[in-house]
Design a protein around this nucleic acid. Sequence first.
DNA 1: TTATTAACGGATAATCTTTATCGATAATAA
DNA 2: TTATTATCGATAAAGATTATCCGTTAATAA
Lengths: 149, 149
Amino acid sequence: MTDPKKRLDQMIAKLRKNDFRITPQRLAILKILASSTNHPSVENIYGKVKKDFPTTSLATVYKTLIVLKEIGEVLELGFGDGGNRYDGNKPNPHPHLICTGCGTIMDPDLESLGDMTEALKRATGFQILTHRLDFFGLCPDCQKSRSAR
Amino acid sequence: MTDPKKRLDQMIAKLRKNDFRITPQRLAILKILASSTNHPSVENIYGKVKKDFPTTSLATVYKTLIVLKEIGEVLELGFGDGGNRYDGNKPNPHPHLICTGCGTIMDPDLESLGDMTEALKRATGFQILTHRLDFFGLCPDCQKSRSAR
DNA sequence: TTATTAACGGATAATCTTTATCGATAATAA
DNA sequence: TTATTATCGATAAAGATTATCCGTTAATAA
């Protein structure tokens, strides 16, 4: 886990650099994201922020997350059902181990995809049912039309 | 790509085996899923079904997909934003190459995760920006509580 | 320190995708 | 052919996220 204080400073610096303001509500959200390693949901973050700032709106949480996504300071894990999950402590793409029973999301450290599944089973006791490996990027056509713009 | 006719037969057999009925609407949806390799969306499937059965409801498409998910005859690709995408031709988990520009989803054939990204860039011309690798399963606690039930 | 100004926060409506509901209909087995 | 139910179609409902509006405030410079 990255040091929460260090992460917080990184996030603040990145926001400043991109001319975003550091408001009390935002700071509270940043602290939560920088220090949590359990990939919180929006509701989860919202609940925590309200302890310090009871009048905080759910929209504020969403808006802050949108900003952080833009500048690459939070990793969004999107699923088709239910709400998304967020990682502000380790915002770069990395493998996840997700329990379809309780929703726990962990960060396994593994080498290659080869024996990955077997190693995961042994190391965590998880019953691995399926996996998901996606690459995101721009196809040749979209690269063209984007540079033409 | 798996032979569409073969896939259709597989899907029908699996439905029969699990005591689901083969209705005309369902058959139309099955045919679309068995023969498409472009990971169609629900709206996409809905549009095609309506050509043959104009009175088909959107709910019917969703219901059929739920059934197919249950028996493992369709792969659902869930995303946080917009609609999900479906693969009925190759229903087992496999890597995807997704264009964040136009939404194209392709099936690359690759070996290890090691040089995967570089190989993908060379082979497809994609500009790969990020990736996603998720494992799904049951954590030890959930395995316990499930077998206890 | 204070004035200025554009960005932000809070409340809520709107949107979008998916699921639930329910009466009518049709697939399947006897 | 008939009886039994799953399924269909239409639509309401739910849940998550985004858009809108306006009063407020953080950041900057005089």
